[in-house]
């Protein structure tokens, strides 16, 4: 089991507290620890100071767009392998393409079901674990 191997930290970046709570509730079965950020700048700060195994990232945020966060994160050598799941209401092809080009690992649109998010996150974490073994 994933959780037994090491304690994973998931960074949830969304300016909506409701969404952050929903993400946490959906991913609770993973038995991981959650770190929350409500803005892009805060996300980068948390990333810089903590050990994060997965980032769930919203695109539309007040201070810094999710794409800018992606750009910053991917430009940094240290975070190039970090799986980033973009979770957004933007369901148009242009947004999806822009996010994937900017370095998103996966793209999921809101509204999401807890099962879909859980499946996606589990897959991303397992791939990382295999990659780092």
């Amino acid at each position: 089991m994933l959780a037994r191997r090491f304690m994973s930290h998931i960074l949830i970046v969304d300016d909506s507290q409701t969404i952050r709570r929903m993400v946490k509730a959906s991913l609770a079965p993973l038995g991981v620890e959650f770190i929350e950020a409500s803005s892009g700048l805060e996300a980068i700060e948390r990333l810089a100071v903590g050990s994060i195994q997965l980032m769930v990232l919203d695109l539309n945020m007040p201070d810094m767009h999710g794409l800018e966060v992606l750009g910053f994160v991917r430009a940094n050598q240290k975070f190039q392998q970090l799986p980033i799941l973009v979770l957004t209401t933007r369901d148009d092809a242009a947004s999806r393409t822009a996010a994937m080009q900017a370095g998103a690992t996966a793209y999921l649109t809101k509204p999401f079901t807890p099962q879909t998010l859980l499946g996606e996150a589990r897959g991303l974490l397992e791939r990382t674990v295999e990659g780092t073994r």
Binding site: S16, I19, N60, T89, K110, P111, F112
Partner: peptide
């Protein structure tokens, strides 16, 4: 724009 957008997002989540 952001407020309508965020509202849309959370409204969608609670169906």
């Amino acid at each position: 724009f952001r407020s309508f957008h965020s509202l849309k997002g959370i409204a969608g989540m609670v169906d």
